[in-house]
Design a protein around this nucleic acid. Structure first.
Lengths: 409, 409
DNA sequence: TTATTAAGTCAATTGTCTTGACTTATTTCT
DNA sequence: AGAAATAAGTCAAGACAATTGACTTAATAA
């Protein structure tokens, strides 16, 4: 009998893996610096001029980079800077929220080229998927009208859906979107769109957006607190989005916390008290209302005592959460983002200060401990769209490795 | 004027980087699986038989792996398994604690070959370094007596020191070991030993030990809660130790928390209530007592009400901390380790159950949510010694990349 | 005895980066 | 002006490490 035992091992790599990584590094460097000459790139990446030359030539042929006018910067031959070509790649993002779904089309540099929104019909995922597929198809048509090249250069469909994933959720708990969790969404979308589809939770998507085109651009260690209908955090660690063992890392809304002055038995998920959902409750708003955002905006603009209470309460909770996150992750910065009116986000940011003391209080900080990120309702959809771009073009450890034939875990 | 602007970029790689990675992957696979044939390795790493053959031959010449007797496992030529050679590499670990310092020598597979302990003299780091260098020298002599090869095969010196690092600490706060923090320890040790020296905090060291030879062996997402004189956590994310932006990730002892029933103003660092230091306070023990461990052991064995109180109190705090860590990191398992008697650790583990509900409660878990790791006073020193081994031989993203000439962040 | 299966080697090939010399274009010095 | 210095970028050969496909070896199964 040959006993077949699973062998645990990481996979190896070869020249192809190295080459793929180097291409990604070039694109990343151009994304971060706007434009660089071949010589700049060689210095920045520690590769030789010649290697860079070959790779840039290849990327130029692939339509991903293009040269700009030569610039004289002193003695020596003028350099020819290169930049990313926005039309080099496109991606579609899909946000599925509790009551609404949104699609977005972006290009290689993260510019939004099309956006669509629809309310999710009653009847659960089976019905909802039809709406979604129609919305995606519409978005693709619109994108192709603007950028005909996109037809052959769509690198994937990123999907953002509120987490957490795969837990034993109460099927009736509206927080969980349990029906969607158990629905074979990935398959339905893969078949329905013929695109490469990946799931993220909404906080991770928000973080992806901040990483590609926002405040986390080029920051290796950043946390994005996402305050939406629920509460979550997207973790950027070592320059990559961290997903955890089951894709649930950062689900800070599920932290059990005692309300101020409350007893231990009063522990409840943080997001029950700190989220747009809690604001809806305080303001007696229907979360399913298509005009929700406008109503919140109106309430936040008016001298509304209940909003002030919510801001104060949520600031209390978030201060503690921020202190914990800073302590546990030691990030360069924390970015507050979410689907709420900008004015409300600003008020919240103000209310959060002064922050609690933490190890983040150090001399010579280059970034603020806490800053504002994207705060419009489209942030998650943008992040969803950014995911395929990031996955395809950003340097990542796993992109170097060969895909393994055997092995587990 | 040529304006010199820093270019932000990740570095590239080449065949050498790929080759170095593949060597690490081989060693990692052998470490995880005990012994594997070349064909096994080829399947596990997705490399070709030929590539594996070449690498294994090289590793064999380097004295890092060796073949075992061929085994027949059915039809076909018998396979020749390979294993790691313990004498292939050695490392020294140094733990500097508040009142004591320890050194350890380990080999490639993590076996402890020598250990030394000394009390740190009064007079601060300047004086302490002399003690430490003498201890290291003694350890090296002892190691060389046991394993003469170690002279040429010492890959580094790992140092574990209580964190956090680089914060604006009160110089008189005994928690902070501020004097050591500001002392140029790295330089002193580098010069004094001519070894490659790296610093970690003690919790990270404990996690490194668990990763190399303990409960986190082969686990990609694990957290080690380290309960020593202070409280910290070592984070293993994607199979690598995560350090954060400033090497302070996991310093959960610095989380500000309200005591049960306490007011907001009572917030204090978690480790003030949850650590061996808090036990010392309860038991009226002098932390500087060289016999501290024995005294704690005695108290924990006796029917001592104060110990029971401490266990209950600390379990209360740690339950909340564990729930937070599970929620935030989504790990496969959490390992409880620290410098305390095994019996006490067991009592604490029991007292922690039932754990608070979290996203970690899922069907089909393969590892327990919480398990016991190393709990002897040498755990941190072992981890310190494991660090150079891990750094030199474990697969890591950064090991693939070229070292960059220019560029920042 | 023969076929089948699997481990492992041999030798040639491929792909990607490196090396070192060279060309081109510009500024600075004399 | 002319020469020297400096920097960007190319050319062509070389090095390195994995791949490819045929081959050898050694076992079990038919």
């Amino acid at each position: 009998m040959n006993e077949i035992r699973p062998i645990r091992a990481k996979s190896g790599t070869n020249q192809e893996g190295a080459s793929a990584h180097n291409r990604r590094v070039m694109i990343d460097a151009l994304r971060l610096n706007g434009q660089l000459s071949r010589a700049d790139l060689a210095r920045a990446t520690a590769l030789t001029k010649q290697a860079v030359s070959n790779i840039i030539e290849e990327l130029e042929n692939d339509g991903l980079v293009a040269s700009l006018a030569a610039v004289r910067k002193g003695r020596g031959q003028p350099s020819t800077p290169y930049r990313l070509v926005p039309e080099g790649a496109f991606a579609i993002g899909l946000q599925i929220d509790r009551h609404v779904t949104r699609t977005i089309a972006v290009d290689l540099v993260g510019t939004v080229l099309a956006r669509k929104e629809a309310n999710l019909p009653a009847g659960g995922p089976a019905k909802g998927v039809e709406t979604i597929l129609a919305l995606i198809a519409e978005t693709r048509r619109e994108l192709e009208a603007i950028a005909p090249k996109s037809k052959d250069r769509l690198v994937g469909l990123g999907v953002a859906i509120p987490g957490p994933f795969g837990i034993e959720a109460d099927q009736d708990d509206p927080w969980m979107m349990a029906a969607w969790q158990s629905f074979p969404l990935l398959d339905a979308l893969s078949i329905g769109t013929s695109l490469d589809v990946r799931l993220q939770n909404d906080a991770a998507a928000a973080a992806t957006a901040e990483k590609l085109v926002g405040a986390a651009h080029g920051v290796d260690h950043a946390l994005c607190i996402y305050l939406g209908y629920g509460l979550g955090a997207g973790l950027i660690l070592n320059g990559e989005l961290y997903r955890g063992a089951n894709g649930n890392a950062g689900e800070i809304g599920m932290i059990l916390s005692r309300p101020p002055g409350g007893a231990d038995a009063d522990r409840a998920p943080l997001e029950h008290r700190a989220s747009i959902a809690s604001l809806c409750k305080i303001l007696d708003l229907d979360p399913a209302d298509p005009e929700l955002y406008g109503r919140i905006d109106a309430a936040a603009g008016a001298p509304e005592a209940r909003v002030a209470t919510w801001v104060a309460d949520i600031a209390f909770e978030l201060r503690a959460a921020i202190q914990i996150l800073e302590t546990v992750f030691d990030p360069q910065t924390i970015i507050l983002c979410g689907g709420m009116p900008r004015g409300l986000a600003r008020r919240l940011l103000d209310a959060l200060h002064p922050l609690l003391p933490s190890i983040a209080e150090r001399r010579g900080r280059s970034a603020p401990r806490l800053q504002l990120g994207f705060t419009d309702p489209w942030a998650v959809a943008i992040g969803a769209a950014a995911e395929p771009i990031s996955r395809t073009f950003d340097p990542r450890f796993s992109a170097i490795l060969k895909t393994r034939a055997v092995g587990a875990a």
